[in-house]
Design a protein around this nucleic acid. Sequence first.
DNA 1: GTAGGAGCTACCGTTGACGTCAGGTGCAAG
DNA 2: CTTGCACCTGACGTCAACGGTAGCTCCTAC
Lengths: 115, 115
Amino acid sequence: MRIGDVARRSGVSVRALRYYEEQGLLSPTRSPGGQREYAEDAVDRVRFFQQLYAAGLPSRRIAELLPCVDTGTTTAEQRAMLDAERDRIRKQIDEYTAALARLDEIVVAAADRRV
Amino acid sequence: MRIGDVARRSGVSVRALRYYEEQGLLSPTRSPGGQREYAEDAVDRVRFFQQLYAAGLPSRRIAELLPCVDTGTTTAEQRAMLDAERDRIRKQIDEYTAALARLDEIVVAAADRRV
DNA sequence: GTAGGAGCTACCGTTGACGTCAGGTGCAAG
DNA sequence: CTTGCACCTGACGTCAACGGTAGCTCCTAC
């Protein structure tokens, strides 16, 4: 698969795919002409990246936990990182929930006082 | 209250307070010498900003909904914006939850295969 | 009246995940 | 064999919420 196909199928830009490679998240092979050649699972991997990006993980962290996904094993450091990230995400969810409540308050307070 | 007091009490930097003013979120008066003078409720307002920033609202949105908070009323546009933001936040929470589940999967999968 | 911490404006720097050229190459179709 | 879209490698631009610095002024304490 070439880069444009992966982009269309995964819903990200070509530029993003090159960026992921630059960050060590993807390592496509090259055609004799120098063009990137992606394996079939690249699309799923990209979707996985998007999901983690959406949760606020930076490229570095994603790169660090890719070995865990591929080998199904973890080192002590990786477990610590995973725990820390899970904790961070849980706290983020709490903050989002609190902010949502604040917006709800505003809506409710203004519900019977519309202009 | 001067800017340093507000900073200490609200836990943000002096630089951040000047930035909030630049964005139209705070409008302190000025002393004869040109120094910013903040009302007592400034600290609460700043904490409110922090809460919304944490939920991914940009300064523009916060500035747009400040009138709602201050007057207790909303226009149709403001209600639309509030609904959109609440929707966005709910979706964000879903994405965070999904990502958390993915990380949990990794942890569980590697739980009995530690290195 | 002076020392010096706190404030002031103005401006450049930072970080992350890309967007956006510019200028050149690969490759399948007709 | 040429058209022409897809791809390539740099390299600079973007956006948001500040951080940091320079050079100056204010204000309070002694």
